[in-house]
């Protein structure tokens, strides 16, 4: 009875079905753990949290230089910028837009820098459904390789005020 004092000899080693289940459950917990370091070394999708201290002003200046050097067009008034393969790409989040839009190539690797000008934002790449946190003061670097061509939409998925739902960006992959 769980609501009365246990028998005096309650300190007993598990046995029978309980013992079997304890073994199975513990083995499963070890599998759960092993998968993470294994994927870290063998898998292609990892969140390493690589990041550097920055400020909104400093980050914005780098984004402007990136846009000036690499702009290839506009989409609904926002510059489309083609990042150099193997090089840096930038996208900043602010209430309530992503800036600039990017043009990337399949199979090329980019260092995508994400940061915020104001509140926290969420970089959510759709319909791929990849999600990363964007925090002011942190230059969050994703070393990213697009695997399929197409037009992708960046949705903000961290609440950032009344216009949050309209904070939409674009990444074009050829």
């Amino acid at each position: 009875m769980s609501i009365t004092a246990p028998p005096k000899d309650w300190f007993q080693a598990p046995s029978g079905h309980e013992r079997v289940w304890l073994g199975m459950a513990f083995a499963w917990c070890i599998v759960l753990f092993i998968m993470m370091p294994l994927w870290h070394f063998k898998g292609k999708q990892n969140s390493t949290g690589e990041s550097y201290a920055t400020t909104p002003a400093a980050f914005s200046e780098r984004v402007d230089r990136f846009v000036a050097a690499n702009q290839v067009g506009t989409h609904n008034g926002t510059p489309i910028v083609e990042a150099p393969p193997g090089g840096d790409a930038y996208m900043l989040g602010r209430m309530w837009s992503w800036y600039p839009f990017l043009k990337l190539r399949v199979g090329e690797t980019y260092r995508l820098h994400l940061s915020s000008m104001d509140l926290q934002h969420g970089f959510s790449l759709q319909p791929m459904n990849m999600n990363f946190q964007v925090v002011p003061g942190y230059d969050h670097v994703l070393t990213i390789t697009p695997t399929q061509a197409g037009e992708y939409t960046v949705v903000c998925n961290e609440f950032c005020g009344i216009g949050h739902h309209g904070m939409i960006g674009k990444i074009f992959v050829e």
């Binding site: 990892n46 969140s47 959510s124 999600n131 961290e158």
Partner: peptide, 12 residues
């Protein structure tokens, strides 16, 4: 809550 799987789940 698995480290890498969270990439396809966070804030959704």
């Amino acid at each position: 809550g698995t480290q890498q799987i969270n990439i396809i789940a966070h804030n959704t």
